[in-house]
């Protein structure tokens, strides 16, 4: 199997840029596992993904994992799944909890950073750390994706190289959970933005 066949008839201008690019993904849950898979398929050359968690049954309604992967570290399961879809992408997986101290070192030099955390407090840690250490590198965050329907409310807010994808009001609460389609719409918009930013470099 050749990469030239896998990626045949791709955009002649953007594709070589994607092949040379590295995308960082903080979190391999609903957003991260789906965004990573899409970016691998699209032809991003290298992905750096970090997550401390293991696959559990309650993840499967939205995350890109399978029943036989329950109990595995998400980074290991994601590696297997991406490898089954694309053997060419270079993967750097970190099974650990991201903090303000280790984020700059792990993701140093990425072309685009994707925030794919679950908790709002973790999102803020990444954003504040990013602006302190890598303010010029594009950061694509997500905020507001719980529930179903209302696809048209999901939007992109942009300020310089900082992007937020989501509806900015759908909170998790009892009976309002993240569900595959809306999570995957946001993940797809994050991945799509990453491709756009890299193509425009």
């Amino acid at each position: 199997m050749k990469a030239s066949e896998y990626f045949c008839e791709r955009d002649p201008v953007a594709f070589p840029k994607w092949q040379k690019a590295t995308v960082g993904i903080a979190g391999a849950g609903g957003l991260g596992s789906n965004a990573a898979m899409m970016l691998a398929r699209a032809g991003i050359g290298r992905l750096i993904v970090a997550d401390f968690d293991k696959v559990s049954l309650s993840n499967l309604n939205r995350q890109n994992f399978n029943i036989d992967q329950i109990g595995l570290p998400k980074t290991a399961a994601l590696t297997m799944n991406i490898r089954m879809a694309n053997p060419f992408v270079e993967l750097e997986m970190h099974e650990l909890r991201l903090t303000a101290n280790n984020i700059p070192g792990i993701f140093e030099g990425v072309d685009v950073m994707i925030e794919a955390f679950d908790k709002d407090s973790q999102k803020l840690i990444l954003i504040e750390t990013w602006f302190k250490h890598c303010p010029k590198t594009a950061l694509i965050c997500a905020s507001g994706l719980a529930g179903y329907g209302r696809s048209e409310e999901i939007m992109i807010q942009k300020e310089g190289s900082f992007f937020i994808v989501g509806d900015q009001h759908s909170e998790l609460s009892e009976g309002i959970a993240p569900i595959a389609p809306r999570v995957m719409i946001v993940a797809a918009m994050q991945a799509n933005l990453a491709l756009e930013v890299i193509a425009g470099k």
Binding site: G27, G29, G30, L31, F117, C141, I164, G166, L172, P178
Partner: peptide, 10 residues
């Protein structure tokens, strides 16, 4: 000024 809400979920 840009002010955005960060909401859990992902």
């Amino acid at each position: 000024v840009m002010i955005v809400h960060l909401i859990s979920g992902g």
